[in-house]
Design a protein around this nucleic acid. Structure first.
Lengths: 175, 175
DNA sequence: CCTCTCATGTAAGACGTTACATGATTCA
DNA sequence: TGAATCATGTAACGTCTTACATGAGAGG
């Protein structure tokens, strides 16, 4: 149920409509979060019922594009968000990476192929790192926590690359 | 659907029963994976039907404890596992951490409280690091990939702590 | 005898993903 | 006119979590 709080958090900055919420989440949290309309629209509906948000229907008010529904956070919503924000977080880190899942079992496969897959994965992580470093600059004006989070993303990526490079070496040297 | 492949991978090492599978996964992949019987038993049932595994019912053969069902991997299972193992992994890294989710929005809350939560979280990460470092030694004899994975866990944890320490400092200095 | 651990299993519900349906506006 | 993009939404399906039911054996 953190999508709910993520949406409330974003509505703190500015009013948004469903389609835009998806874009913002993908840009800002994309590495740690996947999101789709099947989650967003039903959640917005439910949050309306709970009166955490309100909606205004805009039928192209001067602006281009099809009609959209702008959502705002209510006093209720602010209260629930703040409560969540400052309570102690429950649950642990969950890191799910289909590559890492395979990696553990590479001992059962062919070493050559394993190194090939590692090389492919390093390319993927390098691409990701580029994007994250570009984002770092984009966000420079934003609030400190958002910036620190972006820095975390970059660090994470560098660490993964370092580790994979070292691992690759050790694997080649083994036996 | 990676639980399926995780189970097949574990059955490569040795025969296991459902209850033990949960233990092994929690010990070895616990940081990246949560697992529960609601996933394991239905999966085993399905895998039996697909003939990826076979079962022997052991009614306390010399050993203590209630009757258990030992599962073994079949030739079929090995084939499907190997295909999965050496294909290119699809999908990206997903990092879900309830603390990190909150962190991004700390700007909307009280700075003092934010630092408190950060301090609590550092304790959590320190505990985790201890456990992972202990595990590192336990697994020293295992295959290289399992060891490298364990090293990754430790690195990840150290990185989180470093980042949080730096962040804490920057937050205190801000404004 | 009672409680704890070991062990297997199911059912209900929450959560997520994929695919589809719909329609307006923009631009070539 | 046709394709691309913006925008909203739902249905079906798959996965995950939580909670419960059951029962054997071990140890106090």
């Amino acid at each position: 149920m953190s999508i709910k709080y993520t949406i409330l958090g974003l509505l703190h900055y500015r009013d948004l409509h469903g389609y835009r919420i998806k874009e913002v989440i993908e840009q800002n949290f994309g590495h740690m979060w996947t999101i789709n309309y099947g989650q967003i629209y039903p959640n917005l509906k439910k949050m309306l019922e709970e009166e955490l948000i309100t909606v205004r229907e805009l039928v192209q008010e001067g602006e281009k594009g099809p009609p959209r529904k702008m959502y705002s956070i209510t006093e209720n919503g602010r209260n629930e968000f703040n409560q969540w924000l400052l309570s102690s977080p429950e649950g642990n880190t969950l890191l799910r990476d289909p590559f890492l899942m395979r990696f553990v079992f590479f001992g059962f496969g062919d070493k050559k192929r394993a190194v090939e897959i590692i090389d492919d994965q390093m390319k993927v992580y390098k691409e990701q790192l580029k994007k994250r470093e570009a984002n770092l600059k984009l966000w420079e004006r934003n609030d400190i926590y958002v910036n620190l989070m972006a820095e975390f993303g970059v660090k994470m990526n560098k660490m993964l690359l370092e580790w994979l490079e070292e691992s690759r070496q050790k694997i080649l040297e083994s036996e």
